[in-house]
């Protein structure tokens, strides 16, 4: 049943509104003029630095000593792989992405299911739940750094009051605890995002389908797996992909909470990249950047291949 779009699903938006038009030379000039500012800005300030950064990856380019910027081939990449910390950083990145993403999806999904049915104050509730979005990642890192403070942090205080722990935990001073703390902060940040995206997807599933399922005698769990989940799988799949890429590239919370410490044990790839950029080794930083880009592109390609067949006949 998968590939076919269930009857009664809302029609794809905007297909009937207008056809994309062809045009004459005069219009073409106007359109070119319309596109030009965006293209110029993105070209100069995003693509140019990105491309010139890519070639630095193959050169000995250190801001502290620019006397020799010769080509070194794969030298920067090899130096990275031979760096004993590299394994830790990659492992941390995976832990960071998976550890943040899974709870975000699960809690976000539950929240969306609960919010689907109208209730009093739902609008106000959503506005409150929205709050993390307005805060920058860096500030969130700072809020949680203060809350996870070993001596005067509210997290230890609450845990001790409830009786889960007897002595304060040195959250940000030990690698294992520090990883936990930064992931907790990130989960807190991301749950709302999923809740809102999934809620929007849920609301696009028509009521008739649920009614039909109810008439056929499907229970709640059955309805969830046979109707809800398939109906929103495409949106869910894409949202998760975008989110994985985004979390992968999201150093702000870690930067503010631990700065990669203690002893460089909580660095993920992007925080490490910022660290070596600030140390001036643009060559290695760019090499690391290229590794990230290719990893993510490969990942996205595989992921999309795995998800695609489900929306075969769009």
């Amino acid at each position: 049943m998968r590939g076919s779009k269930p009857a009664g699903a809302p029609p794809a938006p905007h297909t009937n509104y207008h056809r994309k038009k062809r045009f004459n030379a005069r219009t073409a000039l106007t359109l070119l003029a319309f596109m030009a500012p965006a293209a110029i800005f993105v070209g100069i300030f995003t693509y140019y630095p990105m491309i010139s950064g890519s070639q630095m990856a193959f050169r000995n380019w250190n801001l502290n000593d620019l006397s020799d910027t010769s080509w070194v081939g794969w030298g920067n990449f090899i130096a990275l792989f031979e760096n004993p910390e590299f394994g830790t950083i990659v492992r941390n990145t995976v832990v960071w992405v998976v550890g943040s993403l899974v709870p975000q999806v699960v809690i976000g999904f539950a929240l969306a299911l609960f919010l689907k049915r109208k209730f009093k104050f739902r609008g106000a509730y959503q506005a409150f739940i929205f709050f993390p979005w307005a805060v920058s990642g860096f500030l969130i890192g700072m809020l949680f750094r203060w809350m996870f403070n070993a001596e005067f942090g509210v997290v230890n205080d609450l845990l001790m009051k409830v009786g889960i722990i007897d002595t304060p935990i040195p959250w940000l001073a030990e690698p294992g605890f520090a990883m936990t703390a930064i992931i907790v902060a990130n989960i807190w940040y991301g749950v709302t995002f999923f809740a809102i995206m999934i809620l929007a997807a849920l609301q696009s599933v028509s009521d008739e389908m649920y009614e039909a399922a109810a008439i056929d005698g499907a229970g709640k769990i059955r309805t969830f797996f046979s109707i809800t989940l398939p109906a929103i799988s495409v949106t869910l799949g894409l949202t998760i992909l975008l989110r994985i890429i985004w979390i992968f590239n999201f150093p702000d919370i870690i930067w503010a909470m631990t700065g990669g410490g203690p002893a460089d044990q909580t660095h993920i790839i992007t925080t490490y990249m910022i660290k070596i950029t600030q140390e001036g080794d643009y060559g290695q930083a760019s090499a690391l950047g290229l590794i990230v880009v290719f990893t993510l592109m490969l990942f996205a390609a595989f992921y999309l291949m795995a998800v695609r067949p489900r929306k075969a006949n769009r």
Partner: peptide
């Protein structure tokens, strides 16, 4: 695609050259 790509690439690769 060029616009979307900017959303996926870590901006930090461009930090130094920028």
């Amino acid at each position: 695609a060029a616009f979307l790509l900017t959303q996926m690439i870590p901006g930090f690769i461009a930090l130094g050259p920028l």
